[in-house]
C-alpha cells in the first residue's frame, strides 16, 4: 500500500517535472512567436532601465553589431521607447529618446535611415544630416542570416530575438531554453527562458496579463576582462504587440526626398552559379 503511494507520488512528481516542457510548445508566448515569424505585427515598448554608466566618456553605444541602431550621444543613459512594424518585406524600426527618434525603414530591397523630431503635437521627419534628403541603401539580407534580426537597440534585439524559433536564430548566438512558467495572481502569469554558456548567463521572464504580453524582464551576468561577474538588468514594458501592422508607418514620410544609392551595384552583370 505504502509502496503504491510512493509510486503514485513519484509518477506525479515526474509528470510535474515534465509538464513545463510540454507547455513549451503550447505556451502563451507562442502566439507572439508566430507573429514574429510571420513578419506581420506592430510592437510598441518602453525600456524603463537605461543602460548603466561604464566609462566617463560612454556617450555612444559600446556594443557594435550589424543592423542595430546606435544610441545617439546625448541619450546614452536615458530610457527610451520604441516601435517595430513589420509586414512581409516592409519593416519599420524606431527608437525614441523623447524629443528625438532614430528610424530605419526597409521597403523590399531598399533601406532608409532618418530622424523624427517632436515639435509640439506633431513629429517632423529629417534626414540623418538634418536636411530633407534621405539616402536609399541596398538591403543586405545576409546580415540578418549571419547576425540575427534587428529590433532596434542591441538589448531589444536580444530580448525579442530570444522569442524566435531556433531555425530563425543564427548559430553562435545564445540559445534560450524554456525553463518554466507560473502564476503570480491578479491574472498575471509568466514564462521563463534561460541561456547559459561559459561566457555568461541570461534569464528572461515574459509577463502576461491573461494572454496579453505586458512586460519582458531580463537579468544577465557575464565576466569582465578581469574575470569578475558583472550583472545587468533590462525591463521592457510592452504597450502593444498585435498582429495588425500599422500601415501608416511603412511608407516614407512625404516631406523626405530620396537619394538613391541602392542602384549603384545594379550595373553589375549577373552570372549564373551552377557548374
Amino acid at each position: 500500500m505504502r509502496i503504491k503511494k510512493w509510486i503514485a507520488a513519484a509518477a506525479l512528481g515526474a509528470l510535474a517535472l515534465c509538464l513545463p516542457f510540454d507547455t513549451a510548445s503550447a505556451g502563451k508566448l507562442d502566439a507572439y512567436r508566430n507573429m514574429l515569424v510571420a513578419h506581420n505585427y506592430t510592437i510598441s515598448y518602453e525600456n524603463i532601465t537605461p543602460p548603466e554608466r561604464i566609462h566617463n566618456r560612454d556617450v555612444v553605444d559600446m556594443t557594435y553589431s550589424f543592423g542595430r541602431i546606435p544610441t545617439p550621444q546625448n541619450y546614452a543613459q536615458k530610457s527610451y521607447s520604441g516601435m517595430i512594424v513589420a509586414q512581409g518585406e516592409k519593416r519599420y524600426v524606431e527608437v525614441n529618446y523623447g524629443g528625438e527618434s532614430r528610424i530605419s525603414l526597409r521597403q523590399a530591397d531598399k533601406t532608409f535611415s532618418f530622424k523624427g523630431i517632436a515639435k509640439k503635437d506633431k513629429v517632423e521627419y529629417k534626414g540623418m544630416n538634418g536636411g530633407k534628403e534621405v539616402t536609399a541603401l541596398k538591403f543586405h539580407p545576409e546580415n540578418e542570416l549571419l547576425y540575427g534580426e534587428s529590433f532596434g537597440t542591441s538589448e531589444v534585439s536580444r530580448l525579442l530575438g530570444a522569442m524566435l524559433p531556433a531555425s530563425s536564430i543564427p548559430a553562435g548566438l545564445p540559445v534560450y531554453q524554456y525553463v518554466g512558467a507560473g502564476n503570480l495572481g491578479n491574472g498575471l502569469s509568466y514564462e521563463d527562458y534561460r541561456a547559459s554558456s561559459s561566457a555568461g548567463l541570461e534569464a528572461i521572464r515574459y509577463y502576461f496579463d491573461g494572454t496579453k504580453l505586458v512586460r519582458i524582464a531580463s537579468a544577465s551576468y557575464d565576466r569582465d576582462e578581469k574575470g569578475n561577474l558583472v550583472g545587468h538588468k533590462c525591463i521592457l514594458k510592452i504597450k502593444d504587440f498585435s498582429a495588425v501592422p500599422d500601415a501608416s508607418k511603412l511608407a516614407l514620410p512625404e516631406n523626405l526626398k530620396v537619394v538613391d544609392h541602392s542602384q549603384q551595384d545594379k550595373g553589375k552583370k549577373k552570372h549564373g552559379f551552377g557548374f
Binding site: 539580407p141 545576409e142 542570416l145 531556433a166 531555425s167 530563425s168 543564427p170 548559430a171
Partner: peptide
C-alpha cells in the same frame, strides 16, 4: 554555410 540554432542551413555564401 550559414547555420541556424536548429542545426539547419538558412543560406549559403558563394
Amino acid at each position: 554555410d550559414i547555420r541556424n540554432q536548429a542545426g539547419g542551413v538558412s543560406g549559403q555564401l558563394a
